[in-house]
Write a protein that binds this DNA or RNA. Structure first.
Lengths: 110, 110
DNA sequence: TGTGTATATACACGTTTGGATATGCTGGGC
DNA sequence: GCCCAGCATATCCAAACGTGTATATACACA
């Protein structure tokens, strides 16, 4: 699992994940979304694939990549354990329901 | 924010976060919890501190470190965005209530 | 079959990283 | 004031990393 942390440490790879969140994309489309050359993107995609973060599907001469969310969920579970105090479980539930965009609740204010 | 991803890419630093989750710890205690020498731990603690992940408090000749959860929460928010599909919001809520240990629900099965 | 396009791999290079060892600094007890 | 414990900083080193350029491979289409 720690593998995923290292893989997402790179900003370009995080960007790829963000773009793939919108759905299946070809390498060319992904190249257009980042700041490096195509071979670099292919290499990052290989790393993402080896970490189980993407799947590939050939379509003609294109290779269509899509996001695999399972490893992200495991990483999210780790974050959830340590991002919050053990107490205040109801408050966390409220945050989850409100979503990330919600204003901080009273309990989160300094 | 991407700083935090890079900082937590290192397994030793993640271990330190896990240990600090139990509460304030001195450097000596932290050294006992990991597999490297004291200078290495001090360096990791500096990196964690610069990323805002820990705070320090002097107590005699000891330095007591504790966890700052705010950056972890921001990182968790990123994870939450991409670890889940946009649809199926109610299902995610159920997962959250059940916690990570819960059996996968029907909706998660292939 | 030949040519262009889409993607992957090879190679070389500079930079960053994490570790060990050695040393410096500070505060407490005698 | 001395000495020891706790911790930080300096230095060196090997390994890993990310990038660009060049090249290879695979498929499409005429």
């Amino acid at each position: 699992m720690g593998e995923v942390f290292a893989v997402l440490a790179d900003p370009t790879r995080r960007r790829l994940v963000e773009v793939l969140h919108d759905g299946e994309q070809s390498v060319t489309e992904l190249v257009a979304a980042v700041a490096i050359q195509q071979p670099g993107v292919s290499r990052h995609l290989r790393i993402l694939h080896e970490a189980g973060l993407v799947t590939v599907r050939a379509s003609g001469q294109r290779r269509l990549y899509s996001l695999r969310r399972q490893p992200l969920r495991e990483m999210e579970a780790w974050m959830r354990r340590y991002a919050h105090d053990e107490r205040d479980r109801l408050g966390r539930l409220a945050d989850f329901v409100d979503g990330p965009a919600a204003k901080p609740s009273a309990r989160n204010r300094k």
